[in-house]
């Protein structure tokens, strides 16, 4: 076998080997592609199935959500209705309460105005006090007159005693009478002094008592006036 033939044969063999390897690779590649395609198909099916399941679940969630939303809307609507009714009731009660409070305040206002009429009573007491003081002053004057008379009586009885002493034995009886009269005059003088002191005490008690009534009256009028002002502000607040 010559070299050329050898080369030819070698070339043939190498060509056959290369062709075989190529063919093998081709089929291997084809088989791999087929396998890959099958895997892709399987995976696609699986994915589609999963997507389908997910879509179904989402749909289920959506339905549940819709139901819950509807339920919540119904409850919210009911709550709103209840709340509106309660607000209305509250407003109604508040309006009634305010009306009653305003009516009470107006009644109190009338009561305060009536109470302030007490001032007339205090004025009457004051007039009575002036009359009493005037009466006491007249009693002082009468007692002073009485005291003057008693002092004169003392002098007269003293003179009578002197005259009786001058008359001697004949005047003894008269001296007894004069002495008795002097004793009576002294008692009358003591009584007049005591009566004057009682009148001064009476003046003090009368004046302080009526001044207390007058000042107490002003205290009451001041308090009632303050009450009236508070009531007026309350009416203004309730009416605002």
């Amino acid at each position: 076998m010559d070299f050329a033939t050898f080369e030819f044969l070698l070339g043939m063999v190498l060509g056959a080997i290369v062709a075989g390897v190529i063919t093998q690779r081709f089929f291997l590649l084809k088989a791999a592609r087929l396998s890959l395609a099958a895997a892709e198909s399987s995976m696609e099916e699986s994915l589609q199935q999963e997507v389908q399941e997910l879509l179904q679940r989402v749909e289920g969630f959506e339905q549940t959500l819709e139901q819950e939303r509807s339920s919540a809307q119904r409850e919210a609507g009911q709550l709103q209705t209840t709340h509106a009714r309660e607000v209305q009731d509250t407003r109604s009660h508040q309006a009634e309460g305010t009306g009653r409070a305003v009516a009470s305040c107006h009644s109190l206002e009338e009561g305060v105005a009536t109470l302030l009429g007490l001032v007339k009573t205090f004025e009457r007491w004051h007039a009575d006090m002036n009359a009493l003081i005037k009466h006491n002053r007249a009693m002082h004057d009468m007692n002073d007159d009485f005291a003057t008379i008693v002092r004169q009586m003392v002098i007269v009885t003293l003179n009578a005693s002197i005259e009786a002493a001058r008359a001697g034995e004949q005047g003894r009886g008269f001296a007894v009478v004069a002495s008795e009269m002097r004793s009576l005059a002294a008692r009358a003088e003591k009584l007049s002094t005591s009566y004057r002191n009682s009148l001064y005490e009476n003046d003090l008690i009368t004046t302080t008592t009526f001044q207390d009534l007058q000042a107490g009256g002003k205290m009451i009028v001041g308090s009632v006036t303050g009450l009236g002002l508070i009531n007026k502000k309350t009416i203004e607040s309730l009416s605002a």
Partner: peptide, 18 residues
């Protein structure tokens, strides 16, 4: 809550009865 009277004139000898 307090009030005050108007004045009055009385004899000084009234003060013996405080």
């Amino acid at each position: 809550h307090i009030g005050m009277s108007t004045p009055n004139i009385i004899d000084r000898r009234c003060n013996r009865n405080l």
